[in-house]
């Protein structure tokens, strides 16, 4: 409010009355653009609704008991291939035991979905882009011990070679 008051005082000092009326409209726009609230009457807009869509390849799982009965309200957990220990998405199945999700296309491999309800549970594994290499728990490359051994062997080889040629020159 103090900022608004000082702004009006500044306008009264530097802007003539005729121009002030026109300037008021511009000020309103500036204020709105900067997030300031003014006590001037402004037209109210109705709450518009906008619905957009994106065409995606979603996966729907359905959790059922082995009797065929739907597993309604089951806890659903989705695991992405890059981190099988951490849930990627969680949710609840609908009345028919269904649950849909859109996997991240940048994470190819086997996606796992777990359903649990009242002491019963099941998992399903869904391969996505199986031609892509799958992430693995195995680390690629060498261990620290192997790298140290390789470095030591290179040094040892250089020293041995040097000693070999130096011996030949001496004899």
């Amino acid at each position: 409010m103090a900022l608004k008051r000082s702004l009006y005082q500044h306008i009264r000092q530097v802007v003539p009355l005729r121009q002030r009326l026109t300037f008021g409209g511009l000020l309103l726009l500036i204020a709105l653009a900067n997030g300031l609230s003014l006590s001037l009457p402004v037209p109210l807009l109705a709450h518009g609704a906008l619905l957009k869509y994106t065409h995606t390849a979603a996966i729907t799982v359905q959790a059922v008991y082995d009797t065929g009965q739907s597993m309604t309200g089951a806890q659903i957990t989705v695991y992405a291939p890059d981190n099988p220990a951490r849930p990627w998405l969680t949710g609840i199945s609908d009345a028919e035991g269904r649950f849909s999700f859109v996997p991240d296309p940048d994470l190819p491999g086997t996606w796992s979905v777990r359903a649990r309800h009242a002491g019963h549970g099941a998992m399903v594994h869904i391969p996505i882009n199986p031609e892509q290499p799958e992430h693995s728990l195995r680390k690629q490359g060498y261990t620290a011990g192997q790298r140290a051994l390789m470095a030591a062997s290179v040094v040892w080889g250089c020293i041995g070679t040097a000693l070999y040629f130096s011996r030949r020159r001496t004899s």
Partner: peptide
């Protein structure tokens, strides 16, 4: 049995 089903996933053995 297939994979363990419970509060957390089991059997993930890192190097």
């Amino acid at each position: 049995c297939g994979e363990y089903v419970g509060d957390e996933r089991k059997g993930l053995l890192a190097e």
